[in-house]
Simulated assay, not measured.
Amino acid sequence: MNCPKKLDTIWGIFMGRKFKYSYDFKVRCVEDVLESNRSVNSVAQENNFEKTSLRRWISFYKKHGKEGLLPRKNQKYSIDFKQHVLQTIESKSLSLRDACVEFNIPNMCVIIQWQKNCKGQGILGLKEKPKGRPKSMNFKRAKKKTSKPLTR
């Protein structure tokens, strides 16, 4: 189905899909704002996405360069790193957005989850939990009753 870009965006929102943007697209949009002196609003409207995403990309780009725009998926963080992030947020009164930029964490929800877990369970709440469904049954084969041969 060939839909115009605007209709594609509306259909995607309606269907509940998340849109992913390529690394090259992010770099081009950020450089449009920073080097071509275009406004965040105009670049976002021209490319049919939210200006808050572009602002976040610009923050990551300023702090970490082009590497800050690379896609990161399912990254695992150590307990020490998580604890350091949470302590820095408290001591420096950082917002979640600023903490994400500072520590190169792609999403604020990650930090929110760490805060919830730490508040409820302490340091043990920051420990990595196993993913997926637990095994529901432990199968043990029935042992033979005797090792003697069968007779008639």
Rank of each mutant, 00 (worst) to 15 (best):
E31M: 14
D32F: 06
V33Y: 04
L34M: 13
E35H: 13
S36I: 07
N37M: 12
N37K: 15
N41W: 05
V43E: 07
N48T: 01
E50M: 00
T52L: 07
T52S: 15
T52E: 11
T52P: 00
S53I: 00
L54F: 03
I58P: 02
F60V: 08
F60P: 02
G65W: 02
G65L: 09
L69G: 12
L69V: 06
P71G: 02
P71D: 08
R72F: 07
K73V: 15
Q75C: 07
Q75W: 01
D80K: 11
F81Y: 10
L86F: 00
T88H: 13
S91G: 01
K92A: 06
K92H: 01
L94N: 01
L94V: 08
S95L: 09
L96F: 14
R97H: 04
D98H: 06
C100I: 04
C100P: 05
V101K: 02
V101Y: 01
V101M: 05
E102H: 13
N104H: 14
N104C: 07
N104D: 14
C109D: 10
I111R: 05
I112Y: 03
W114K: 01
K116T: 08
N117M: 06
N117C: 10
C118N: 05
G120W: 03
G120M: 09
G120A: 14
Q121M: 11
I123P: 00
I123H: 02
L126A: 12
E128Y: 10
P130G: 02
K131Q: 13
K131W: 10
G132Q: 03
M137D: 03
N138C: 11
N138W: 08
K144V: 15
K145D: 00
